[in-house]
Design a protein around this nucleic acid. Structure first.
Lengths: 187, 187
DNA sequence: GCTCAAAAGCTAATGCCATTAGCCTCGGTT
DNA sequence: AACCGAGGCTAATGGCATTAGCTTTTGAGC
């Protein structure tokens, strides 16, 4: 019966992500989201508790997007092939959404709202390392090292931190190889 | 003749760094700096062009601090000893000033004001790798890999991104060893 | 010591943004 | 047919950056 299209939290977050893609995280403002969704700023509070909470929702979405993509990427692969695919998928995501990556929470596990999403992302990495026969804490360390590599590179690249873009593919390949070699040595 | 202590750009940046150490980068506000230096907000414009420029100065200071410390750290060392010392000094700096580290510009080379400071920091890393016999672009790649490792870890640790602080020293030692092994393989 | 110009500070005003309070309206429920 | 709650709106508040224009101080030169 043709209900007038109404705003929902999901649509608000959609608009927020568009804004971030276009203008970066600093561009995420309730006023801008309101303008984009065709609503007065205070109306957003019916869907979101505050700007801080909206940022939280955005963080969850980014984590979920990444988890989804990496899960599909790694499905059916194992060992070095899986790790390689995961690392390349990580970089590909960040290149596709450089601004959005900056909205990924660094500490999802310390936020009620983001905890579940953060855990799932880590678990994808952990699962990808299954098969290397890593015992308990060794698996944790290996996952951490992996995170350090992919996040370190992604963070610098998306921030324009490498002077010249020249040879970045090579640098990344070397990082992948370094990690795989390292895994072999630990096993 | 006892000149009444006047504000200078340097003192403004000092206050900005204190503020950042206490409240994080979001806490850096001209109003807060003014309060801390005992001056009305608009007066700051006599020493700094804008909040953005102040952030730029802060970034330079952080880069310079790091460069100084790392330079002293690796002086007189070479090879694995030097790399190890540099990596540990990097982490130590970030642990000492976790909030401040977030004020380090990711792309100093693209900012007129920060370019020189950024270059010097990179050069310390590059120089530390001297002696591994890396030819031209191999040295660039090796420096990039080093940056990825130290920044990746520092960024996650200072952001509270590792679920538990447990075993972080071990994780870092493993990263150091991984990098040294990698360097050996490349040489 | 005196004058004066520039440096460094101040107040007032503007505009943007987040947030809160309180009102209005529609659509579905009873 | 009356009602009620969700979702929107306007108005108001307070923080912050920034600009304009005025005042005071200081130090240089006489």
């Amino acid at each position: 019966m043709a209900v007038r299209p109404r705003l929902t939290t999901v649509k608000v977050v959609d608009a927020a992500l568009e804004l971030i893609d276009e203008q970066g995280v600093e561009g995420l403002t309730l006023a801008a989201v309101a303008a984009r969704t065709g609503v007065a700023t205070p109306s957003l509070y019916k869907h979101v508790a505050s700007l801080a909470e909206l940022r939280g929702h955005v963080g969850v979405r980014v984590l979920e997007e990444m988890t989804d993509r990496f899960t599909h990427t790694v499905l059916g692969l194992a060992g070095d092939k899986a790790v390689e695919a995961l690392m390349h998928a990580y970089r590909a995501y960040v290149r596709q959404h450089p601004k959005r990556y900056a909205a990924m929470p660094m500490d999802p596990l310390h936020d009620e709202l983001q905890q579940a999403a953060g855990m799932k992302l880590i678990e994808v990495m952990l699962a990808t390392l299954r098969g290397y026969g890593l015992e308990g804490s060794a698996a944790v360390h290996a996952t951490r090292r992996l995170r350090v590599l992919v996040h370190g590179f992604a963070s610098i690249e998306s921030g324009g931190g490498f002077g010249l873009p020249e040879g970045l593919d090579d640098t990344y390949d070397q990082l992948v190889r370094m990690y795989l070699t390292d895994l072999r040595g630990q096993s």
